[in-house]
Amino acid sequence: MMEDNVTPLRPGTAKRLLVIDDSAIVRAYYRQALEPAGYAVEEAFNGLEALEKALTTPFDLAIVDVNMPKMDGLSFVRRMRATEEIACLPVLMTSTLDRDSDIAAARAAGVNLYVVKPIAEDELRRFTHIMTGAETP
């Protein structure tokens, strides 16, 4: 159902990323930055779709936007951390909000790393490598 757009470059070893953002352009940006680096990228439009996907496929990292319809990034992370099967998924949160209170709220929800948008591609790859423990290709 949702396997169509996953193209692992190194079958078997590719780390799986779940990119969660309501903007199709942002998702495409992450995909073109990360796929060539050997990641398998799956997309979700909001927190609810992300929960459904995370519950059916194992991922190594979720890259999560904050401002999204139906279920926002913080609610997604809270719900995920409270759901046994997916509680341990590492989360990189990206946001346009840069106040200390925003960052504190993210940390309290269980976000592992918080980055303010827009993110340069090499930075994105660096964080992703570190957070997934992937060998640099």
Binding site: I25, A28, Y29, Q32, K117, P118, I119, A120, E121
Partner: peptide
């Protein structure tokens, strides 16, 4: 100078 803006515009 902003790579994301360039990408967003090209995609749009």
């Amino acid at each position: 100078g902003n790579a994301y803006v360039r990408f967003a515009v090209d995609t749009a």
